[in-house]
Design a binder for these strands. Structure first.
Lengths: 208, 208, 208, 208
DNA sequence: CATGAATGAGGTTTCATTCAT
DNA sequence: TATGAATGAAACCTCATTCAT
């Protein structure tokens, strides 16, 4: 389940701190130059660490990519938790609206690293790669859950729940991977409003 | 306009042939292993060419990436031409339906190389990169043209033409970049049917 | 005469204790993995000491090798003392017989570390290297002494005393460096008996 | 049986030439500095080759050690062949005398590399290591053959044939590993004469 | 035109040693 | 005194590119 990364330190707290430092520093360079175009010297510098010390907390350059991906996609997990809490307490319509809003804003904030992860995951080793895929899957599942329950209470009227869930996820990712196009036409707020209206059409719950 | 690639040959015909050979061969390996993980030996082998000869027709490994991307996305250009011809002769509704069908099928056929291009373009040099962006832009433009004219004849009733054009392009790309998800639920034919219905809703031209 | 090893401690007793600890711990790993294949982390662990503390009592990794060699060959010195005492009190024949027995048994006990020392001494620094050579020389000298006196009393009848002394030493070392061969054919006891008979022939003092 | 070493060349002849060049060049440095103390730059220089080209013909530094050992001990094989031919044509006494002479002279010529091989073999990888052990074993076997046949014809009178074979091999190796001692007392010729006399005693064939 | 041997800069990783705590 | 985190030089190895044949 957990992908053990080699370390020479026994101090778990320190290892955690340093790995976070590495993930954050490395993410900055990776986003700019890509994983393969960044050499370990540059990573070390971006982490304000010496090359040697870097290797006290990781086993290989590949491990750094994994750390970056793990930290870089952690927000998806957090957002999933929030969504689940959300639709325990509110109408599904409201929950869906808040979900879209929340995810678009998170994606906006994390667009660089998220794009990076989606691009580079293809070249990660098997176990690492699947951890990322699992995370994507989870997001779909959570949204499916929301839609399915809304369907049951007749708030929504959806034929193909999982396809609509997929569409929603794609709409959110789109804000990142089509940003060259979208930024010319939309502010984040306007994009959210527009997509919300569209998605409400898809779930058969015309807004207003 | 054109990004000159170094060659030691004067025979333009030969240069063209060899470059096509290179683009096709390299594409096969790149798709499998990624650009950076493939070394020039492997490229040469995949092109059934010697390493030395390879360098008669290109100036650097980077050039090969550019060739691959150029050939790999050529189908988009071809499809654009076809679309333009299409809506000269038919109702815009029919043109749109055929367009969606045609693009999805082309995308299905070329999904590997297209995904590769979209992923790796980020790491191409400026001039190369923009050539790819132009191609994407062109596709949007052509669809915008179709939608705008349909709007004028009241076949369509679209608020934000360029956003819908973007949505259509994303729907088509989605068949490639979400295939792990979609292949579990749809055949290509069913996907086309489903998306066509959705897009016709978006353009305000309910099908049937 | 003495090869000063750097220390940060003033407590001579402590320094001596720690260095013995180091020599014993390091010897165990060196014998198994070789000097160069063992890193300072592993040495420290084998010594039940921290890396930092290790460097309180030695100046470099090389120094550890010297300590190991020094302690590892100390038995030769001890055996030399015993031999000298021996032939003060007994007939030279008896002394020789006991000498052979004693040395073979010591060598058997210390074969790993002794082999290691003989192998690696080649790569010690000049002064260290010669300290080891002196020790080998000393052993020969002591045996030469025994043989020469036996010659004088006509217990032995040897042409070339120092060559026979050399042969004896080689016979004893042979138990270690040819053990893959010898262990298949001989127990230690049988080896001693066989070699004793041979050596007595060499010294012209047929046994029995 | 054969330990395949990676190469990027298909030209078997060239590979063989270059590997010989490598073995010879590397042997010179290894003998002086030891395997581990020699870096690949120094090896490349000693081989009059660039580092990169070196790696066209070998897969790792370890492979170079193997090549050196293989070439460095080849003389043993050659000598074995000669011995076998020898005792097909001559009296076993003469054959033994020539054998001792020949082996001592070869050992004298190859003492550096042979010592190196015997020292470093301990740290070779399993399969490489055993190839060297096999070679040692072979030498013993060949001498055993000679002694055993001599025993049958009553030219020799040996109790323990394989032990005497071992003694002979050790006597020959001794010229190399005890040379610091022996060179002070013997020329090669005198050493051969002296050892021959001793060995003839051991085989019960008193000379002259 | 075609080949592949040769180059060497630069990549990742290790490790002896120092030093603040 | 004892610790182990930090350093950076140097190790091995790869690979894009050139060039003699």
């Amino acid at each position: 389940m957990d992908y053990q990364i080699r370390t020479y330190s026994d101090d778990d707290k320190l290892v955690a701190t340093r790995r976070e430092q590495i993930a954050h520093g490395a993410a900055r360079v990776f986003v700019r130059k890509g994983f393969q175009n960044t050499n370990v010297n540059e990573i070390a510098e971006a982490c304000s660490m010496s090359k040697g010390n870097l290797y006290h907390y990781i086993g290989s350059k590949e491990d750094i990519l994994f750390l970056v991906v793990e930290y870089g996609l952690a927000w998806v997990d957090e957002v999933c938790e929030k969504i689940i809490k959300l639709y325990a307490n509110e109408s599904f319509k409201n929950a869906l609206e808040t979900t879209i809003d929340m995810m678009c804003r998170s994606m906006d904030e994390k667009q660089d690293i998220t794009l990076f992860c989606l691009r580079e995951v293809r070249y990660l080793d098997q176990p690492y790669r699947h951890k990322v895929y699992d995370m994507e899957e989870k997001l779909i599942k959570v949204i499916e859950g929301l839609l399915a329950r809304g369907n049951e209470t007749d708030e929504f009227a959806i034929d193909d729940v999982s396809m609509v869930a997929n569409d929603i996820v794609v709409d959110i990712q789109m804000w990142a991977f089509r940003r060259r196009f979208l930024n010319k036409r939309y502010t984040l707020d306007k994009y959210i409003k527009s997509r919300t209206r569209l998605i409400f059409k898809l779930v058969g719950a015309e807004k207003r």
